[in-house]
Amino acid sequence: MSGTPIKVLYFAQVAELTGARQELWPIDGPLTGADWLAQLAARYPQLAPVQRLKLAVNQYHVSPETLIQPGDEVAVFEPVTGG
């Protein structure tokens, strides 16, 4: 019944907590980043202590209001600390 999946990438502490670096995640259709983050929190309760989760969709930073489409590459991570 589920549609085209999104490809989810986990980085740094988020990858440590989920125990995965990437996975396919079926979605039924477009949904906001915030709605998808709720699904993520339900599947990985161990992410609860992480204060700030950021999203990138197709390698662009996005806000939680942004729509995620089937087939998108969605990355989840804490605020970046390069430089």
């Binding site: 502490q13 804490e78 600390t81 390069g82």
Partner: peptide, 27 residues
């Protein structure tokens, strides 16, 4: 460039101290 890179380029630092303690650096 370096200011913007620090807040936007997707890198994450993990500190491994000489005493052995390890942690992800927070922004």
């Amino acid at each position: 460039i370096i200011d913007a890179l620090k807040t936007r380029a997707p890198f994450w630092k993990r500190e491994i101290l000489s005493g052995g303690k390890q942690f992800w650096v927070q922004q």
